[in-house]
């Protein structure tokens, strides 16, 4: 498989603390790689090393199958990035901000109007960025990252601080890119729901360790949701369900159904009602990121 980003034993140490520990990241071409992890897991540090903003303490980074420490400038010509909060010059207009970058890339001016259009900032292109809302600044940051038509786009928490409509807008924009422009995307987030909706491949970082790296489908298997029933006389209710051939478990005073298709849930409810049990609640327990982390880390230990 052709990997756009490949790290080998990538490690970063700050004094005694190890922020990133022997990470072997693999991003296949054309994928949206969701880089997941709680705050402080080392995501941003990893991304900084991918861009050469920080030097690894150990290990290597390959982008486009070239070593970053040898070919940094050629690699960066084809990489667009937005690391943490967008950097911009508030005293300049949106257009001038992009113009400053354009000068360095040496690309035609038409690309500025193009990206402004893409992130829907054309109307405010001549306004100073000082007065922009957070969402507009974030969009300007994405425009800066896309200005030179990169082949790899690195977005670090691009939806941080955005309102729901802003998040949806950015998400749709990101989703469109691989198909329209053939871009490979690395997007980091601490929200599983965020990654779940756009990523095709997922890497999970926890305390500097890459504890999971596979397709989103495999990830979803980890985050199986449960349907929980709160009923009267639960012991008997559970027994009656099992007797009716429905796979269920009893724990924490709730009955949890193993099969959670609509049909199966309806069947279970019907059976309970039929047997005169009172149903207080039928709820879905969403697999939280924490829960999945716990599962993953415990699994790692048991291995």
């Amino acid at each position: 498989m052709e990997y756009i980003v490949e790290t080998n034993q990538l490690t970063k140490r700050f004094g005694k603390e190890i922020a990133v520990d022997r990470v072997d990241m693999r991003i296949p071409k054309g994928e949206i790689y969701g880089f997941l992890g709680p705050n402080g897991a080392g995501k941003t540090t990893t991304i900084r090393m991918l861009l050469g903003l920080m030097k690894p303490s150990f290990g290597s980074v390959q982008v486009f199958q070239k070593f970053l420490n040898e070919d940094r400038l050629n690699i960066l010509k084809k990489v667009g990035s937005l690391v943490e909060n967008p950097s911009y010059y508030p005293h300049l207009t949106a257009y001038e901000n992009l113009e400053a970058l354009r000068k360095v890339y040496g690309i035609p001016k038409s690309s500025i109007t193009e990206v402004l259009e893409l992130v829907r900032l054309s109307d405010v292109g001549n306004k100073k960025v000082k007065g922009f809302s957070l969402g507009m600044k974030q969009r300007l940051g994405i425009a800066s990252a896309l200005l030179h038509n990169p082949e790899l786009l690195i977005l670090d928490e691009p939806t941080n601080g955005l309102d729901p409509s802003g998040i949806i807008e950015i998400r749709n924009l990101i989703k469109r890119l691989p198909a329209e422009r053939g871009i490979t995307i690395l997007i980091s987030s601490h929200l599983l729901s965020e990654i779940d909706q756009i990523a095709t491949t997922v890497g999970v970082l926890n305390k500097g360790h890459l504890i999971f790296q596979d397709t989103i489908e495999r990830m979803r298997e980890y985050s199986k949701q449960k349907v929980l029933l709160s009923v009267s006389d639960r012991e008997h209710a559970w027994q009656s369900l099992v007797a009716a051939g429905i796979k269920a478990e009893l724990h924490n005073g709730m009955i949890s159904l193993k099969e959670k298709s609509d049909e199966k849930v309806a069947q279970a409810v019907r059976s309970l009602v039929h047997n005169d049990f009172s149903i207080y609640r039928v709820e879905e327990e969403k697999g939280s990121l924490e829960g999945i982390f716990l599962e993953m880390t415990t699994e790692e230990k048991s291995l």
Partner: peptide
């Protein structure tokens, strides 16, 4: 002001 250094360093310039 907005940590432009990181954007600047991520450009293809030394």
């Amino acid at each position: 002001e907005t940590n432009g250094w990181k954007q600047l360093t991520a450009l293809p310039v030394s």
